[in-house]
Nucleic acid binder design. Sequence first.
RNA 1: UCCUCGAUAGCUCAAUGGUAGAGCAUCCGGCUGUUAACCGGAGGGUUGUAGGUUCGAGCCCUACUCGAGGAGCCA
Length: 438
Amino acid sequence: MTCQSYQGVRAVPIRRLGDHLEEEVLVQGWLSNIRSKGKLHFLQIRDGSGTVQAVVAKDAVDDASFEAAGSLTQEASVRIIGKVVADARAPSGVELQPRLVELVGPSVDFPITKKEHGPAFLMEHRHLWLRSKKQTAIMRVRHEVIQAMRDFFYEREFYCMDSPMFTPNACEGTTTLFNVDYFGDPAYLTQSGQLYGEASAMALGKIYVFGPAFRAEKSKTKRHLTEFWMVEPEAAFYDLDDVMTLAEDFVSYIVKRVLERRRSELEDLERDVSKLEPATQTPYPRLSYSDASKLLEADATFVPGDDFGAPHETLLGAAHDRPVLVHRYPRKIKSFYMKADPAAPDFALCVDMIAPEGYGEIIGGSEREADLEVLRERIVEHELPLEQFEWYLDLRRFGSVPHGGFGLGLERLVAWITGAEHLRECIPFPRMLYRIYP
RNA sequence: UCCUCGAUAGCUCAAUGGUAGAGCAUCCGGCUGUUAACCGGAGGGUUGUAGGUUCGAGCCCUACUCGAGGAGCCA
């Protein structure tokens, strides 16, 4: 006897009940809602794979089961043995006619009720909020995105080469580092796996890094987390065009996969999938920073030569029905490792991908500076500690090659695909400014 | 760091400066097809904290704490 059967009846995930019509099965899960009507109890049972209605009739079960069913409260856990039948009156078209209902664990005064709640309350109860329909749907989409991402790189023979979380050096500016005490020495939580990714690309050619990144930004917006997951491909002998093509192939692949396999989740989320379909087609529109600046000329808040703000990105994104690639930003507003455009040295060979519908920048990438002396100057210009970057400079001393890559913020991509209001809903346990519980 | 808004029952919100209320949740009762079910009843409050104005403050003033949205910055 295992937990996967009970009284000789085999457990079936709710998602798969449609394959077991007219069979007797074991369903194990939690009560998401109950409606009682005299001698009938309508139980909504959730098991993580889906939700199904169980109709407990007084004359179809023993007294103990009927009593147990009637006294169930929200999020009590249950074990049910019953027959799977098709019924148009059931919310999912399939329902369970139990002959046995057993309480596994009681649930008294579950805090998250059927009516609406404020964000602070929900965040305080994130561990329980995760059980709700929308949150589980978002998490399944996140899961699908991660799987699609790994499949994409596997198919193209990019090796998974993860970077360390502890690092002695900064790569995205020194003001947003989380400090840690590393056996008495100062160290930081990584802001990006890229620098190590470059070293890995010199070893294995095409690689990707996937892991959390930490940024101590004092940002209080729906587009920021202090801990977020980033996937960062890096490839030797890739120039900026190769990077842009890889980025659009990557995003279109993922969107296509989610549309194929997670339709019902997108329905639960009431996501308008017609807004996602154009993104399955490549190429994506490409425009240079200079071209984009002209489009923003009418906007008084835009200062030519400065980076785009969130409203500008929204404006640029809104002009297209799919993500847009903006390339060659002014070098002075970009990171030290980006290669200058030989044709216009004040601009960097870099690219941002801006998602439609105001979801903002989901990708930042570039061709990297491959020349030892130029790179050394940049590190000094940016007032970074040169001695901590000697290993990084070695990549230019020993067989330097043109190379490039990008970083994609997983939660921002998931937010756009699911239509989520806020990034905090796109990671199981978000870490934000002033929020580290639960 | 800056700007704006907010804090009243477990939750979401009401309440001319004059007796603190509703829906949901909880508990009790009713109902054999409910769809955030419905119907009847019950319990539930130091109005974020500390001061101040006033005959009287949930409401006006000051400070603080916490929260939300946005800016900057970024993925």
